[in-house]
Amino acid sequence: MMNEQRREFIKKTALGVFAGLGVASGLVPAFSLEKTALPVWDEKPVPGKIRWGMVIDTRQCKEGCQQCVTACHHEHNVPAFKNRKEEIRWIWKNSYKNVFPTATNSAVSKEIQNRSFLSLCNHCADSPCTQICPTGATFKRWDGIVEIDYHRCVGCRFCIPACPYGSLSFNWQDPRTAIVDPVTAYPTREQGVVEKCNFCSDRLVKGLLPACVDACPEQAFTFGDMNDPVSDIRVVLESNVTMQRKPELGTKPSVFYII
């Protein structure tokens, strides 16, 4: 399954890579800061053409395994504040009860009650957080990703209660003090802005799958373009019964769960 996903990616991006060779002629990556890997999509993207989505097969998610969380938080310089009050998280493990508090089937098996369910930003099609943001710092991208523009965020924090999934974290203090093993390839955030999962837009542009998808030893994730009828994710969505979080709110999440 993993290989197929990669193939799909490579197919989609082959054209972009060839175009990217042209870019290479004008680019000397002599110095390794945030590395200027060539964008896979050479041209300006067409809004609405792609909609990234993710399916998490929770049956594969193993208890005690934190590899996706570690990979994501390491790759994006997510600070590790220990106290609950200031904790910052992009992806984390949660219980069935907390992930699906409004699910009608409350009498689930013991196994499901004990299973871990990953929480992350749902990249909703109708996202309340982008609607409430007074400056448009939290905004919906051309490819369905809900992104935070850290250059623009004023730190008013209205997006935090606006999100029904608790996906946003605020930098109550300078995050750089709590980054354990910093990576140079991705920026940090600064004191006073809100942050959250970006669906690895930084990796997608290089033609890579999201860090959590790549890191999972059980291949529990399927990631792809939901607008592409032959994509992997469409196959998985069409052949499985999936659940979204709090669907009754009408936010239309892009993250689906197989229970």
């Binding site: 042209g22 870019v23 002629s25 004008g26 680019l27 990556p29 110095f31 800061l33 945030e34 590395k35 200027t36 060539l38 964008p39 999509w41 050479d42 041209e43 300006k44 993207p45 991208r141 051309w142 490819d143 542009v205």
Partner: peptide
């Protein structure tokens, strides 16, 4: 906008990045 390529006056192309 996701527009990541800068085209200079002489036609050479660059990635829009601090890097």
């Amino acid at each position: 906008e996701g527009d990541r390529v800068h085209i200079a006056a002489n036609g050479s192309r660059f990635q829009k990045s601090l890097g």
